[in-house]
Design a protein around this nucleic acid. Sequence first.
DNA 1: CTCCTTTGTCGTCAAACGCA
DNA 2: TGCGTTTGACGACAAAGGAG
Length: 307
Amino acid sequence: MQVSVAGSSAGRGSPSVTLVQLPSGQTVHVQGVIQATQSSVIQSPPMQAVQVASVANAEDSADSEGVTDSQKRREILSRRPSYRKILNELSSDATGVPKIEEEKSEEEGTPSGIPAMAVPTSLYQTSTGQYIAIAQGGAIQISNPASDGVQGLQTLTMTNSGAPQPGATIVQYAAQTPDGTQQFFVPGSQVVVQDEETVLLKSHMSTAATGDMPTYQIRTPTTALPQGVVMAASPGTLHSPQQLAEEATRKRELRLMKNREAAKECRRRKKEYIKCLESRVAVLEVQNKKLIEELETLKDICSSKTD
DNA sequence: CTCCTTTGTCGTCAAACGCA
DNA sequence: TGCGTTTGACGACAAAGGAG
């Protein structure tokens, strides 16, 4: 099934409606969640197209008489709920909709690309073709396609309780490579990150599965500063304009770096959210199909009785 | 091969959100 | 209320694919 998600219109003036288009040409209107500057196409396994009801847009047009431009603009720009919020609300309404996990759990080592479900053992397939199984004990097994550098299973084990240090998180990365098991110990307040700002265990676990051993560095997630970066003195101790300028530059660099990472994370969440929407569409399609079949059966029964 | 279009990704800005 | 976070919007860029 191919589901295309596009903002209803480009630019800042667009109302917050997302059109999820099904292969049959039908569209699902999702209120107030996604806008894309360009349309995105997501591939998913083939699925029979069944009619899906559409949800009307509740905040159709903001242009009413007597409203100033600034007010209009403010209405247009009014914040939509976050993906996580919407999805978690959806998941509370309907079963089968996985939740996006809280940020905390991600830092503790749970691959956030995996939806959290209350199923003892779950199997997922990533966009890269990997299979991820979550065992009861929290062990995460990654099965690579045969074309990948490392074949077979890799295990990510996350332990919180009973850790050697209070509040520490053990992240074991055991890959069945010729070198043997590789293991990472991650204290609670730190994350192991790859070079190129790629956080280990974050989204693309396939990067850890390649044959080449990437280099890692320990960072504290709160600051995201690379090692060796020393915080400058507080503004009160700065004297010369040059120092002030350096401080401003440093602050800007820090802000940009943080925002860069935040944008990456936001995009990852957005993708995850879209995947969840797709799965919801699939569930609804199946439900709809069943209901149609049930209706047909009942119709047959009624018509046979009247005959 | 070159040019154009489409698609996807990334960095940045800015505004809204949310929390202490 | 200030500050950090989140996310829509935008532009730049690269890769892929099609047309000529």
